[in-house]
Amino acid sequence: MSRQTWWFGALFALALVCWQWFRPVSDAPVNQQDYQPDFVAKNLSSVQYNRLGLPYRGLDAEYAEYYEPLAMTLMEKPVILLYSPDGQPQWRLSSDEGMINTNDNAVLNGTVVGQGLQPDALVETLTTEYLELDFINNQLHSNRDVQLRSSSYQAQGQGLLGKLDQQTVELLHDTRATYINP
């Protein structure tokens, strides 16, 4: 191999070393910027009222982080209380973790339990692993297994659509219901 080839080889190795040396330490993608919560709350408890002064949504959480730029709140052990138009408590939704996108929706994850608060309701308890609460259309959505229960009625299925205004809960696929003491 001629002297010239050696020279090119050395030059290439030097360039490789310089490139490694001066490469930015981490070129993490832009959207993984390190957001800091605007405020953090412990044992959060809040109730929202409508123009008539009636409660329409309550929110409790053991721990919450609020991110203003994202209009998002992350929560641990959230409890969302939903009221009927005349201010009567209707549903109590709780889970291990949750996230609220302000004025849009809430997402509940991990051991989600919905309790119907109306007396002698056909559905007293709703359980699933994932539940989305659409604030705009006042609906509940899930694409997971869902169980509905009361003293005399048990049902399970895949996927859920709950219309709070019409007070309906629909299981969407492969459902089974059992009436215990008909």
């Binding site: 559905v123 009625y153 049902a155 299981l171 459902t175 089974r176």
Partner: peptide, 22 residues
């Protein structure tokens, strides 16, 4: 005296009317 079991593709629970449509 036995439980009634109902299998169906969908079931709609109408809480206000205590009615379930399979």
């Amino acid at each position: 005296n036995q439980p009634v079991t109902i299998d169906a593709g969908r079931q709609l629970v109408e809480l206000a009317d205590n009615k379930v449509t399979f």
